[in-house]
């Protein structure tokens, strides 16, 4: 019941802000919002595959562009050749790693059918791609672009590989039925979603992670927006999780510290992707004195 409600809310929220168009025709997601890359959260989505022309996600006005390599006096940029447009309601979109010289800098106002550039491999890109960001300038936050774009067909559910117990003695894999000592323990899990396109599956970040212990929902991590708090980029505005707090490795998510009391303990991890596919892993544990 609870899961259905969450899914319904997710669909409603998607529909309500379902305003923009995909900037390319063939969408192959290779990195998702909130993923760990270069010890930072990915602040948008990366679209891979063959090079394609790019259109703006909405009508807008050119705010800023940078053509890689045109002046040695410009600051270096991992975004390579990139362009930023202003849309309605304080929303801006950024298109990075474009083909050098492909951006149309003369056209200040753009429409949905206009070509604004072409996917490339400038900046820190290691292959042909488009790095797309959606920024809410009024609330000074990065929004998961998937919340603003048409839903993609996705038939695969997120994968939860190993789950780890972190104690003073170190990190150990936990298996169902494992006997552990009571006390405060940390939990982390190897989690990834899979994005299919261009003939292969690409590991990407999920959209939400929840942890239940004995049925009590103790952790909810949603990859909806990123905001600055205390000089750090954080996921979720209320609780606020920084990159270093969340990631122990590229795909290992730290879920927090919990007090486990003696007895039978049921640990449940639920992971959803943006399309609502859910992966669940349940561990009955025996906690001893």
């Amino acid at each position: 019941m609870k899961l259905n409600l969450v899914y319904l809310l997710l669909v409603i929220s998607c529909v309500s802000v379902y305003a923009f168009q995909w900037p390319v025709e063939d969408v192959v997601i290779i990195s998702t919002f909130g993923e760990s890359e270069d010890n930072q959260f990915v602040k948008g989505v990366d679209i891979g595959g063959d090079s394609q022309d790019i259109s703006p996600i909405d009508q807008g006005e050119l705010v800023f562009y940078s053509n890689q390599g045109t002046s040695p006096l410009d600051i270096p940029s991992g975004l390579g050749t990139y362009v930023i447009y202003q849309h309605k309601n304080g929303i801006r979109s950024l298109y990075g790693c474009l083909e050098a010289g492909s951006i149309n800098t003369n056209q200040k106002q753009v429409d949905l059918s206009d070509t604004i550039g072409r996917m490339g491999s400038t900046g820190s890109a290691v292959g042909t791609m488009l790095h797309l960001q959606v920024i809410d300038t009024e609330f000074e936050k990065y929004i998961n672009p998937l919340l603003t774009l048409p839903l993609l067909v996705d038939g695969s559910k997120p994968i939860i590989d190993e789950v780890y117990l972190i104690t003073e003695e170190g990190k150990q894999v936990i298996n169902p039925g494992k006997i552990i000592k009571s006390g405060v323990v940390g939990l982390s899990a190897d989690i990834r979603d899979l994005s299919y396109g261009a003939g292969y599956y690409c590991p990407v970040s999920p959209f939400s992670i929840s942890l239940f212990i004995n049925g009590e929902n103790l952790v909810n991590i949603n990859f909806e927006s990123l905001k600055i708090k205390d000089n750090k980029m954080i996921l979720q505005e209320l609780e606020g999780i920084s990159h270093d707090e969340l990631y122990r490795d590229k795909w290992e998510f730290y879920l927090g510290e919990f007090e486990l009391n003696p007895g039978d303990v049921m640990v449940e991890i639920s992971v959803k992707d943006f399309a609502g596919n859910e992966g669940v892993k349940i561990f009955p544990l025996k906690v001893m004195e």
Binding site: I75, G78, G123, K141
Partner: peptide, 29 residues
Amino acid sequence: ISYDKNQVSEINNIGTVVWQKTFSSSITE
């Protein structure tokens, strides 16, 4: 300057970070 142009760190002569600033939008200068 971080690849996504949201963070600047100053480095001293021995290679350690003196300070680091994270911004809510891309750095232009």
